[in-house]
């Protein structure tokens, strides 16, 4: 059950719409960041496969410039 922290760079004009989309995604928790700063999200999922799929889904949201990873803990599945 990996946990990761993401930084999401967005088009400022579409920030609110992107936040709304992210809030509707399962297993994604947004942390408040001020306007002008990237969005910060925590993914808490069952498998690395889901984690990667979510990463890509976020990356493909219209107005998202790019998504980067800042933290990844997979101690539960390090013996997979």
């Amino acid at each position: 059950m990996p946990v990761s922290g993401l930084v999401i760079q967005v088009d400022p004009a579409r920030r609110n719409a992107i936040i709304s989309t992210l809030n509707n995604l399962d297993n994604v928790e947004l942390t408040d960041t001020p306007d002008g700063k990237p969005l910060v999200a925590v993914l808490d999922v069952e498998s690395m496969r889901e984690e990667e799929a979510l990463f890509k889904e976020i990356n493909d949201i219209s107005g998202v410039h790019n998504v980067t990873l800042s933290y990844h803990n997979f101690e539960d599945i390090s013996d997979d």
Partner: peptide
């Protein structure tokens, strides 16, 4: 999860 959020906030200078 707290550590993940903290690392991301630090990365964006917050």
């Amino acid at each position: 999860k707290g550590a993940a959020a903290a690392a991301a906030l630090t990365a964006v200078g917050l």
